[in-house]
Amino acid sequence: MKSLCLTAGLPLEEMAQLSDIVRPAVTLAKREALAAQGTAFDSLYAVRTGSLKQVIVTDSDENLVTALWLPGELIGLDAIGKEVYPGSLVALETSTVCEIPYDKLDELCGRSPEVRWRIQRCLSHEMHDERLRLHLLLHRTAEVRLACFLVSISERFRHRGYSPHHFRLAMSRSDMASYLGLTPETVGRTLVKYQRQNLLLSRGREFRILDLERMKRLAEANGRRQRQRCSS
């Protein structure tokens, strides 16, 4: 729980109370589901090791990857309102998670303004990240979308004390494509383009950003698709 933003900096008494309601860690095998889409919501989950994705099956039977969680992040915040998990929670690799029963967490929030504020902050971050992602997908080129994604992953690893330049990401190219609203072929071509530009080296699940500042500038570019003007 040390890396979890919910507990970072909490007074010892509140941290002990929070630890008391957390259930023992559960280990998930690669591709194992933690919860299925539509399952009744009863707990949040804190990722200890590994990574998980959320997959939503639409009415037209399309599988969409809508979320990615790394160690220290909370799963299930988007399930609180409708009281069901909106998508299946699937391990991308061997992972461990800690279950936090929501009814007990809610009781603790009533006793501890500090814990309640931490939950509200996590919800706020979740909303901000979702709106930023929607903005990213709006008419942006594949090159800019993928740069934004890689910079975001780089920052998330840096916050956890890992290298922002060299990391292993368990997502497949197909999952990355679904998450960014692209095709796997487009993701593959764009990664090859980055390598030709000496921006990135990628092999399987291993990524090494060679020029992080240039990657950030690319991610911050307008990057909108240019519409062809009809000649008069």
Score class of each variant (00 low, 15 high):
G87K: 06
I153T: 01
R160T: 06
L64Q: 10
L201M: 13
V90K: 01
P113N: 03
C109G: 05
A36Y: 15
F157A: 04
L18E: 05
E93Y: 00
S60E: 15
L150N: 05
R160Q: 11
F157R: 13
M171R: 14
K193R: 13
S88C: 10
I75G: 01
G72H: 08
R140F: 05
V151M: 08
Q197V: 08
H128Q: 11
S202P: 02
A46I: 10
I153F: 01
S232P: 15
T94F: 06
S43E: 04
R121K: 05
E93C: 12
V115Q: 02
E220Q: 14
L200G: 00
H159R: 15
H135Q: 13
L105A: 03
S88L: 11
D103M: 15
A177V: 11
R158C: 02
S19H: 11
R173H: 10
N63G: 05
S95R: 04
R158V: 02
D106K: 09
C98L: 12
L146T: 03
D211Y: 07
L212G: 01
A142N: 09
G188L: 12
E32G: 03
M127S: 08
G50Y: 08
G72M: 09
V151C: 10
R160A: 11
A147Q: 03
L182Q: 07
L132W: 06
K2F: 09
L68E: 04
L74D: 06
Y45K: 11
G87H: 02
Q197N: 09
S112T: 07
S88Y: 02
V97I: 12
S154E: 05
S95C: 08
P86M: 02
E185H: 13
E13V: 10
E32S: 12
E13L: 12
I21Q: 02
R160W: 02
R131M: 13
R203I: 12
L4S: 03
R168H: 10
E62T: 14
E114L: 14
T183W: 10
G223P: 01
A91F: 01
A221G: 05
G161N: 07
H159T: 12
M1G: 09
S202L: 03
E93M: 09
R205F: 07
G188F: 09
P11N: 03
L68H: 07
S95Y: 00
A67H: 15
A142T: 13
S154F: 04
G76W: 05
S3C: 05
